[in-house]
Amino acid sequence: MAVFTTVSQDEIASWLLDYDLGEVRALRGIPSGIENSNFFLTMERDGHVREYVLTIFERLTFGQLPYYLHLMAHLAGHGIRVPAPIPARDGEILRALKGKPATIVTRLPGASQLSPNAQQCAEVGDMLARMHLAGVDYARQQPNLRSLAWWQQTEPEITPFLDADQHALLRNEIAHQTAFFGSADYAALDGGPCHCDLFRDNVLFEAGDGGNFTLGGFFDFYFAGNDKWLFDLAVTVNDWCIDLPTGALDDARARALLAAYHAVRPLTDNEHAHWQDMLRAGALRFWVSRLWDFFLPREADMLQPHDPTHFERILRRRVDAAALPWI
């Protein structure tokens, strides 16, 4: 969520005349992330101050965005704690700002927990399963745009920056996933709308009494798409349940997250059989995207590209794993 497109407070005040949110009190850029321009927006109306998030989309188009925004509205309407898009006076939740698509959503309470414990992982697993089930009747369809076809398309763009060993790992893993995605077992896996990017910094927790934390919600749905639920679970475990320096899975955290998920949406024998394949797929997806962002960056204020070697380590560990945590 770097700032690629700058907006002044006067510009946003003029744009917000089409909303019924009151007066602008503050607008400040959010420095983390690398896809969209995001800002915290403070508004005052009738003496009440409320916080929102303004997003200007840098890559996604007006045609693509309704899937994400209406998914958030759908999930919020089903009791899942996610940002709810705010409509303008004409009812539209997506409008142009400085020639680009933009939207305003509610700001969730809390802060990210970057060193999660098993209890916090369990809360994430529980809500992820509830989110998957809540999305079953969501009518709009859009595939995960960062899935196999994108990995295959991106491979020749990033291979000039890799050494021979890295290139071999990339080539072999894409071949493995191509075969897996084409299998009958893969086709039989359950799926639906998925977050596809549920990292620690995309979840908020509220601090409570006695040092306890309550899950505040999931946000940043702009990589979401229809995919296999096991893939979404693997992406989540690959971030929430690992030792960051090494990429090794933490057994207690992984089992806590998986057990909490399973208690809401029971996992199947077929999902168990392909758990390693999906953990590898989740690692490959983010290794490819981080290589792409690192070596082929865009200009942006406050841009902070992630180190691609982190997911290279995770992928190597998942390929070599003899046993993996499960329920």
Rank of each mutant, 00 (worst) to 15 (best):
238 N>M: 01
313 R>C: 13
311 F>I: 00
223 F>A: 05
234 A>Y: 14
321 A>K: 03
321 A>N: 04
278 M>E: 11
304 Q>V: 07
240 W>T: 00
253 R>M: 08
232 D>Y: 12
305 P>F: 00
320 D>Q: 01
262 H>R: 10
245 P>H: 04
235 V>I: 15
262 H>N: 15
252 A>G: 04
254 A>S: 15
278 M>P: 09
304 Q>A: 12
254 A>R: 04
263 A>I: 04
256 A>S: 11
275 W>V: 13
284 L>R: 06
312 E>K: 01
321 A>Q: 05
295 F>L: 06
216 G>Y: 04
242 I>L: 00
315 L>A: 15
306 H>M: 06
315 L>H: 13
309 T>I: 06
317 R>K: 14
220 D>K: 08
250 D>L: 10
214 T>S: 12
301 D>N: 00
219 F>Y: 15
222 Y>P: 09
319 V>K: 14
315 L>N: 11
295 F>P: 01
284 L>I: 15
255 R>G: 05
273 A>I: 05
259 A>F: 07
239 D>I: 02
253 R>D: 01
277 D>H: 15
250 D>K: 08
215 L>M: 11
232 D>L: 10
261 Y>T: 00
310 H>D: 01
282 G>H: 14
245 P>E: 03
289 S>F: 01
231 F>M: 15
251 D>I: 07
287 W>D: 01
284 L>G: 09
223 F>K: 00
229 W>N: 07
313 R>K: 15
254 A>Y: 05
238 N>C: 08
270 N>V: 12
234 A>Q: 12
311 F>H: 04
221 F>E: 01
219 F>G: 13
258 L>I: 02
244 L>D: 09
265 R>I: 11
298 R>M: 03
259 A>M: 10
289 S>E: 03
264 V>P: 00
240 W>A: 03
239 D>A: 06
257 L>F: 07
293 D>H: 04
255 R>D: 11
278 M>H: 07
312 E>V: 04
233 L>D: 15
286 F>G: 03
317 R>D: 13
242 I>Y: 00
268 T>H: 11
269 D>G: 11
279 L>N: 09
251 D>P: 00
225 G>Q: 10
301 D>Q: 06
268 T>V: 14
227 D>C: 13
283 A>W: 15
238 N>G: 10
264 V>W: 06
217 G>Q: 14
318 R>L: 10
274 H>S: 14
272 H>L: 14
218 F>C: 06
267 L>F: 14
255 R>I: 02
281 A>C: 13
306 H>P: 05
244 L>W: 11
266 P>H: 10
289 S>V: 05
300 A>C: 05
299 E>P: 03
236 T>I: 08
319 V>M: 10
266 P>G: 08
307 D>K: 00
273 A>R: 10
321 A>S: 08
248 A>P: 06
